[in-house]
Design a protein around this nucleic acid. Structure first.
Lengths: 112, 112
DNA sequence: CCGGGAATTGAAGAATTCTGCAATTCGGCA
DNA sequence: TGCCGAATTGCAGAATTCTTCAATTCCCGG
């Protein structure tokens, strides 16, 4: 294998490591959506959204196709939902366990 | 909460988005290990490993303690193993399928 | 108290990623 | 064909992350 497995995995997780990309994936859990809708629900510039969608496409976690004149995006596999759920569980476990983290997170972004 | 959930999630996934950090987590799945062992199994400089361990500690996915004169690291919650497993599933799904899913989605385009 | 391995910290430079703007492509439709 | 909205691409500057090397801290055994 040319690319070590742990490197491929790291790449996959890094792909999810962006607020816009996370939001996109969460929205896509409910089913395929046109770019137009994503744009309406996420506060981001069209070109920036396109960039992030391209990142997701490159890794293969989402696929895109055209339907009724609009470009649609969808999760490439429902397993993605499991990943997000697992992330959510860890997050809540960590937030309740460790006192320091909550304060740290709060410090990072005071308003909103 | 002061930090948007999707940003906290992104931070958590970004934390895993590094080859060394992934390897560490995989090794820790088998139980707590001293830094010394991690160092022996991963090809990385001591200081670099420490940096990456610090990143994992900051997010709260691992904890460290001292035992028998050595610093030990452990997963802060076994949920981390689920996350890695989900990542592995997605990776294999993406690698094996790819164009098949796309065709399938295009076929019955849900216009709801 | 001292020596020495274990582990962390600090900092500078290289490399990568993000953001926003402008320009371009792509399809549908009159 | 020509127009128009939808979506993507290219790019430059800003910001963030990685890597490496040197210095420092922390403990345990003698």
């Amino acid at each position: 294998m040319s690319v070590p497995l742990y490197q491929a995995k790291a790449e996959m997780f890094r792909t999810l490591g962006h607020p816009v990309r996370i939001r996109v994936l969460e929205l896509l859990q409910a089913g395929p959506r046109p770019v137009r809708d994503l744009l309406a629900e996420i506060d981001v510039e069209p070109s920036s959204l396109s960039q992030q969608l391209a990142v997701l496409r490159r890794t293969g976690v989402v696929v895109s196709f055209r339907d009724a004149g609009l470009v649609m995006y969808a999760l490439s596999t429902p397993d993605v939902a499991d990943l997000l759920a697992a992330g959510r569980r860890i997050l809540s476990a960590v937030l309740t366990d460790r006192d320091g983290l909550l304060a740290e997170l709060r410090a990072n972004s005071p308003t909103d």
